[in-house]
């Protein structure tokens, strides 16, 4: 039996490596997403994915399609520029596929939503209407559990 050539093992090794490289390139080609954007290096389908999520907040326009009456009044209100959903909650928690699925009423047991904006703080712009704790406590001396909306209309609060 003749001995294999002195470099026979190298030939086989190179063959194995070339085979592995070829297999790798084939696999790479197969698994790379077909929508791949080679210029900016991302999966093209990612754009559709990112725009596919549902919007939870509809904006005031979505509210007035059902609540036209509020819209009429709102034109005169002090709070007219506010987003309905910032107090009433997201549209998606209120309406789904044209059906009402939950109430959008504001928690009237506390004044936190009023104070969330109007509690006096040094960090707020000076011209923004703010009420400090003492003033609120003064009010509460009249009636301890009193909340802001007992006297102030939330849509059109007058001082």
């Amino acid at each position: 039996m003749s001995l294999p050539g002195p470099k026979a093992h190298i030939v086989r090794l190179v063959a194995v490596l070339v085979g592995a490289l070829f297999a790798f390139l084939v696999i790479k080609e197969v698994v790379t997403p077909s929508s791949w954007n080679y210029k900016d290096w991302y999966r093209g389908d990612a754009l559709a994915l990112n725009s596919s999520y549902e919007a939870a907040y509809g904006g005031n326009q979505s509210c007035v399609t059902c609540h036209e009456e509020v819209n009429q009044e709102l034109a005169e209100f002090r709070h007219q520029a506010l987003s309905c959903e910032s107090c009433h909650g997201a549209l998606a928690d209120h309406v789904k596929e044209g059906e009402k699925i939950g109430d959008a009423v504001v928690d009237d047991a506390s004044s936190w939503q009023c104070l969330n904006c109007h509690d006096a703080q040094v960090s707020k712009p000076a011209n923004f209407p703010q009420f400090d704790k003492e003033k609120i406590e003064e009010h509460q001396e009249i009636e301890p559990d009193m909340i802001c909306t007992a006297c102030h209309t939330p849509h059109d609060p007058t001082p």
Partner: peptide, 22 residues
């Protein structure tokens, strides 16, 4: 994402929508 999904639907980002002070 700047609410990409909203902007693509013609809406504003949610944070912009609810900001009471613009």
């Amino acid at each position: 994402t700047w609410c990409y999904h909203r902007v693509k639907k013609g809406l504003l980002p949610a944070c912009v929508t609810v900001c009471p002070q613009k």
